[in-house]
Design a protein around this nucleic acid. Structure first.
Lengths: 201, 201, 201, 201
DNA sequence: GATGAATGAGTGTTCATTCAT
DNA sequence: GATGAATGAACACTCATTCAT
């Protein structure tokens, strides 16, 4: 791991816990094991670390979204009496590569903290936690409807409900305190309960 | 408004936007219009301001909860074909006196920011945003069920769904960027839509 | 004890331990149990407390010196084979009313600390620890010599030796750490040993 | 002279005159000619400056004591009718390298000021001004006695008297006001008078 | 006699940053 | 790639003091 990557890693860990301003260059360098002056070889200034993290996150989620589109673009299929599994596939993919992914999770926390006074991060926060997930779900369920697997008029509320449920669980378990295994399991359990109840009907 | 109150007011506004650490005593005093030394006549130190805010919030929500209990304790009644209105009464009370209340809303933002490195605030955050609202809703719907107004076995999921819906909307509209009238209205609209849909059935 | 006296008492205790500058008005008032503003009813400013202490000390030692002169002025007398006891009388008087006296002892400590940057206190320090005691002893022994109780030419060195001995013991035991009973006793023991040895010859 | 050394030098001069607490970081930096922030590159905090001075003093006097031991360990010799000169050698060495040495003299003053509220410095003060000098003298005179140059039973009182005399002179001339040439000369004169009188007999 | 409220100057210390090496 | 040395601005906080009540 390069020094630059180490700095970004340590910085994100600290920013996401204490907030950008409350973390000092000293703190970061102390943890990385370099002198403060060295950091300025790798980054223009403190803001540059944050910007690099944001940039990394943007391209990361762009990759995720592209991958999700790929899955979702395939036409829906009824397999026996089971509903098309793309819902679960996408959901579990988003959980593993997004909500549970250390980098993404810490970025979400950072955005949660900074959004109140940083419009750029506020927009990213709104997009990644509310707009995009809603749209993803909507695409999937619309496809299911157009494949005749559910009534067109149910789509809106099904999506709204499932999205609100997932969102609440995300805040409750994944963006609350440390991301421990215990919290991850509790999250998975509630998601599973919700899914079984919904698809039983 | 006493100097002490002005300090707390200004401090909360700043803390809830930029985080406790990122706000300086100078910032607060500049806004209040006093010298830094004067602040130390009213508060032992910076932490003391935060503690006083937390204390004020605790007693504030204690009052709210007591009031909600009072409303909820009355037996449920069917009025004509309408569902018992205590749901709406409590909901609108919580919205006005809690989510829309400037002091509470800012405290929620502060807790959202600080919870990642302050266990005391994390617990308060979890309690006030997840545990307490869930419990309040549960009490109401249980009462409705025991009054024969809904099947006992529906209670859990009705509560879970409505709670998750309200929680998501709170994060999406009330704890995201500034609390503008626009966001308040958007929040109200979505709450209303959800309610009509739910109680139409 | 009046508030003014309490302030002086507390101030001296603190000044003599930590030095004038290192003690704050807050420290003194905290210990006395008054508000800082109250202190300014009793003293013009911080310096005024120190000046009052010095003034009190000056008149205190003026009284001591007058009393010693009174004793010393009486003509020396041979009583049997014993040497005139005025030496011991004066010595023990000086020990009780000066070196062991809480007020004087603390003032000596204060002067010891402040003399390096306060010429007024430096002069008082030199006078009360070196000049005056030497002179007192000299007066006594001269009187003894003129009464034929010791050779005139021995006086100078007897005084020099006894004075240096007493001075060293004062610094070693009475102006070193807290003035505990243990240190007082060690001081008395060494004084006594010195005296017996000297007057045995 | 490195910046670090300059800081220690200036700090000692100021500490020994006004006491540790009464000297500000600003005072020191102003005199050294650096910004306050620069000082913190060289020292962890204010206390660290004091600790470094104490450490330097400790190793300094360790060197002195080792050197004195070296001289004292050689067997005493009668040279013609003169007394063994090791007394004078050691005395003059101690005067030059300890009492008159600017660093040591200022450290003694600092210890004199701080001993009343700093137990570490109190112990060092007692050791360097009372215990060690007494022991050094005792070693020398014991050696003289065992070389038959003075009666064994005289040793204790000879040492006590000479030590008390030297100590008193140290406080009177070398630890009183500025260490001027005038005071140094007065000190030397009185030491010389004492020595001639003592070794004449 | 005593206090509540305020202040300007000063305290020790940390901040992000620069630059020659 | 990395560091030693430096800096001006800011940090939380304390200082002695004032003054109306």
């Amino acid at each position: 791991m390069s020094t630059r990557d180490k700095i970004m890693d340590v910085a994100l860990n600290m920013f996401s816990e204490r907030g950008y301003e409350a973390v000092s260059i000293r703190d970061i360098c102390g943890e990385v094991g370099i002198k403060e002056s060295t950091l300025y070889y790798h980054f223009k200034n403190k803001k540059d670390i944050l910007d690099s993290l944001i940039e990394k996150f943007r391209s990361h989620i762009d990759g995720l979204l592209a991958h999700v589109d790929e899955i979702t673009d395939k036409p829906a299929q009824k397999k026996g009496k089971n509903v098309d599994p793309s819902v679960q596939i996408v959901d579990s993919y988003m959980i593993d590569s997004y909500l549970f992914d250390p980098f993404c999770n810490l970025m979400l926390r950072l955005m949660m903290i900074e959004q109140f006074h940083n419009e750029e991060l506020r927009e990213l926060y709104e997009k990644t936690l509310f707009t995009d997930p809603y749209e993803i779900q909507m695409n999937i369920y619309k496809r299911l409807a157009s494949a005749g697997m559910m009534p067109e008029e149910d789509v809106e509320w099904v999506v709204k409900e499932s999205h609100s449920y997932m969102t609440m669980l995300t805040f409750k378990y994944l963006l609350n305190g440390d991301l421990t295994d215990k919290r991850k399991k509790a999250y998975c359990k509630e998601v599973h309960e919700y899914m079984t109840r919904r698809f039983k009907a």
